[in-house]
Amino acid sequence: MLLCRRDALRTLRESAEAVPGSGARAPSLSANMHGASFTRQERLEMEEVEAALVRIEEGRFGGCERCGGAIGRHRLLAVPEARCCLTCADRRTQGAHR
């Protein structure tokens, strides 16, 4: 799932950077001027996906970075790039809203 999402994001980025009609690459400013920029959310998602792939390689995938416990199977199926278990993620979200 992570590899497929990474490939999809790379394809999206490449198409956002292409100059319409020429097949050439454009600088980021030009891509932004054409309205086809790689969004902040997409950049963040790419970073999270790539970080999850590193955790897999290092044998750390599936462990919560906050409490050290296991990230539940259902959470990883829903959000494969998750860094925290659901309990810690909820605590982080609640703390951000205070």
Rank of each mutant, 00 (worst) to 15 (best):
residue 28 S to N: 04
residue 52 A to T: 05
residue 96 A to T: 08
residue 22 S to E: 13
residue 71 I to L: 04
residue 48 E to W: 05
residue 98 R to F: 11
residue 59 G to T: 06
residue 65 E to F: 03
residue 42 E to Y: 08
residue 26 A to Y: 01
residue 6 R to K: 10
residue 83 R to M: 02
residue 12 L to R: 07
residue 78 A to N: 14
residue 27 P to E: 13
residue 73 R to S: 09
residue 67 C to D: 11
residue 17 E to C: 08
residue 76 L to A: 00
residue 68 G to M: 08
residue 7 D to T: 07
residue 90 D to N: 14
residue 42 E to F: 00
residue 37 S to T: 07
residue 75 R to V: 14
residue 60 R to D: 15
residue 24 A to T: 11
residue 18 A to K: 04
residue 3 L to W: 09
residue 38 F to P: 00
residue 36 A to G: 13
residue 66 R to T: 10
residue 83 R to C: 06
residue 47 E to D: 06
residue 65 E to G: 14
residue 53 L to V: 15
residue 79 V to L: 15
residue 87 T to F: 06
residue 4 C to I: 08
residue 11 T to M: 06
residue 52 A to V: 04
residue 45 E to W: 05
residue 93 T to L: 04
residue 75 R to C: 04
residue 36 A to S: 15
residue 68 G to S: 03
residue 78 A to W: 06
residue 33 M to Q: 13
residue 49 V to D: 01
residue 28 S to E: 09
residue 54 V to N: 10
residue 58 E to Q: 08
residue 82 A to W: 03
residue 63 G to P: 02
residue 15 S to K: 14
residue 5 R to L: 09
residue 95 G to V: 03
residue 6 R to H: 11
residue 93 T to F: 01
residue 74 H to F: 06
residue 51 A to F: 05
residue 96 A to L: 13
residue 73 R to V: 13
residue 24 A to K: 13
residue 14 E to V: 01
residue 93 T to A: 12
residue 78 A to V: 09
residue 41 Q to G: 12
residue 45 E to Y: 02
residue 66 R to V: 08
residue 44 L to F: 02
residue 43 R to G: 11
residue 69 G to F: 05
residue 65 E to H: 01
residue 47 E to L: 04
residue 69 G to Y: 02
residue 21 G to N: 01
residue 78 A to R: 14
residue 82 A to S: 09
residue 31 A to L: 03
residue 97 H to R: 15
residue 61 F to H: 10
residue 70 A to Y: 07
residue 34 H to D: 14
residue 38 F to L: 03
residue 30 S to W: 06
residue 8 A to G: 07
residue 6 R to M: 05
residue 94 Q to P: 01
residue 9 L to M: 03
residue 36 A to E: 05
residue 98 R to P: 10
residue 13 R to Y: 08
residue 59 G to N: 00
residue 97 H to D: 08
residue 83 R to V: 03
residue 41 Q to Y: 09
residue 42 E to M: 08
residue 73 R to A: 08
residue 41 Q to V: 09
residue 82 A to R: 01
residue 31 A to R: 00
residue 59 G to H: 03
residue 86 L to V: 07
residue 58 E to V: 05
residue 46 M to Y: 08
residue 94 Q to Y: 13
residue 17 E to M: 15
residue 15 S to G: 01
residue 94 Q to D: 14
residue 64 C to Q: 07
residue 95 G to T: 09
residue 1 M to F: 02
residue 42 E to C: 04
residue 53 L to H: 01
residue 64 C to D: 03
residue 86 L to Y: 10
residue 5 R to F: 02
residue 89 A to F: 11
residue 51 A to Q: 07
residue 61 F to L: 03
residue 24 A to M: 10
residue 69 G to K: 11
residue 60 R to G: 11
residue 73 R to D: 15
residue 48 E to R: 11
residue 13 R to K: 14
